[in-house]
Design a protein around this nucleic acid. Structure first.
Lengths: 193, 193
DNA sequence: CAGATTTTGTTGAAAGATCAACTACCTCTT
DNA sequence: AAGAGGTAGTTGATCTTTCAACAAAATCTG
């Protein structure tokens, strides 16, 4: 339909054997690892990974509050998804919405005390899960390799994602920022309110 | 609630800086890559990746048919999920159900001509997508490293997944089988009907 | 072989994600 | 300052996945 890709029917560049095996191993391992982490988190904290990430980002923000759109960028999710997620997190009593004084369109997501407590309770199990299923398995060299490979992919992917949705160009810098700092990091930049 | 994990409150083994950065890079890159592949596939073939995989597995099976439970194992999905997926694929005219003569509980998913055609139409774009967003970016060394890391994770994860749901122990061998063969591979083992 | 147990596969409900409107507000231009 | 256009955020519909419950058929056990 839309010629997003040249329609000239050149020979497909099929994967060779090495690539093919790497490909199967990659899909399988990333999917299983994601599933396992999700599963552990669901069991230990009663929430999906995407919600956990929202709580983490909020907890790292000054005043434990953040503009919706910023939060969407920071968690790599669409505004719609975040809006639904925050609605759910409000029902759970972990997040509260506040209106943004400086921009009356805006709204702030604020982490409640209960939300912070839930996060604190979940965090140790979550780190343990990440260790068990990932870092404990890798040699020091592999840790470096994994990081380098991931960075390579990100250098390619981030510009693509950012340029597609011009409105969410903030994603790129959000991501770059996170890449340069610790996970259990301190405060993030001002949230513009 | 259930003591699936020792409840003794030992000090959490937080991630150090290197691990933390690798972790952020890993989640970010795998998520973006998955999203990008899904997106390309949705655009080019009008179906989610999980459906595409079902068609692929069927196309590689003798007679382009496979028992539901085998197909579930082969695509790393629950029986329920597969059942819903096949229902949807039937609506699209790409798959047809047939009853299994040798086991009257069973049912077979069969790839239709239209389904095979849809797959053939989608495959070149999909490989191109995988190349563009993954293999074209990696050096030969990184390809090997990625494969080794993925294999390491699989050695750990496959037993866990298989042992949890004893009924789906077939997953492990299915996965191991796929790891030893080409993606565009030839026929798979008999499907028991 | 009768009864208990497992296995196979489906179903409906609920949860999460995506998509396409849509409202309200801001900002830029003239 | 009026209007055009962009930005922030929400909403409802739809799709996919998960979960728990279930029916039907096979298999195991005494």
């Amino acid at each position: 339909m839309s010629p997003a890709r040249p329609t000239t029917a050149t020979q497909p560049r099929w994967l060779d054997d090495d690539e093919s095996r790497a490909w199967v191993a990659w899909i399988l391992s990333t999917r299983l690892l994601w599933d396992e982490l999700e599963r552990d988190l669901q069991r230990d904290a009663g929430m999906p990974f995407s919600y956990y990430e929202v709580l983490v980002m909020l907890s790292e923000s000054p005043l434990r509050a953040r503009r919706m759109s910023e939060l969407a960028d920071a968690t790599q999710s669409s505004r719609s998804r975040l809006s639904h997620a925050v609605t759910r997190l409000e029902e759970l009593g972990w997040v509260r919405r506040e209106s943004c004084p400086s921009d009356r369109r805006g709204s702030l997501a604020v982490l409640t005390e209960a939300g912070f407590a839930a996060l604190q309770a979940a965090a140790p199990d979550h780190v343990e899960s990440v260790r068990t299923h990932l870092f404990d398995l890798l040699s020091p060299e592999q840790l470096v390799q994994l990081r380098e490979i991931s960075d390579t992919l990100l250098d390619h992917l981030l510009p693509i994602v950012s340029s597609r949705d011009e409105s969410q160009a903030g994603r790129l810098e959000m991501a770059r920022a996170r890449l340069g700092q610790s996970d259990q990091g301190k405060g993030a930049p001002a949230h513009g309110c």
